[in-house]
Amino acid sequence: MGNAILDMTTPIILAALGGLFTELGGVLNIALEGLMLVGAFAAILITEFTGSTLLGTMGAALAGISLAYIFGFITLRFRANIFITGLGANLFALGITNYLSSIIFGTKGVIHSPEFPSLLRIGNYNLFLFAAILSTIITVFIINKTVFGLRLRATGYNASVSLVRGVDSYSIQMKSLLISGALSGLGGAALSLRLGAYVPNMTAGRGWIALVAIYLGRKHPIGIFITCLILAGAEYFSNAAQGMFTIPSDILLAFPYLITLTGMIIFSFINRTLEK
């Protein structure tokens, strides 16, 4: 059970940590979903051709970084509306994976090959879990102890004060986007490599759940880690209920959205009540 919850939550933790960097830098990053998706696809693509999950994982991070760069460049340089360009990045991820999948694999559907290398595990645990834990710790360190972390938070809290102090918000926000691309890409790899296959649109809202987890986790890496565990736990138990009540799979697929939405409503309700 614990193992299953951890496996479910690892991709979301990684993406949420990535989103935390952009969030702290004052950028609402609704492109996490797309960044994860290109990561998931690149991981399978590169692993398929090299036979190495390590190279696949690195490729996933690189794919996330590349899309984040396009997204960031357009948003920051052209001063475009970040919500709309974020939607663009998500659709771009769907489109480009569909295109490459048809061109390279000749299918728009599931990509899976029988001799796909299995994912490294330490004991019972997925290697990505350790990556997520390590990333959480490193994130705490970067945010609080480094020059970049301080400038990132300062930019997010008040870009004009930071500017007066000589902090270049463009470069800070761009770097935060690239980090979110790398971590979300890894999150995508965690998703597809564990399955050993790529399924179209396999992120299925996980990027959005990660986004909500950032708020529910009070924008703190540890808080986010715990929130993701709770969300995954809730999903796990509702899935487990399937056995008892034979809930159809389509309804199960709606659960993550409903659980996250409920968490968000409770959170905003508490916030509003505290304000008063």
Partner: peptide
């Protein structure tokens, strides 16, 4: 943090 911002000793 406020004081060193922009001139952080590294």
């Amino acid at each position: 943090e406020n004081i060193i911002l922009g001139a952080e000793p590294s």
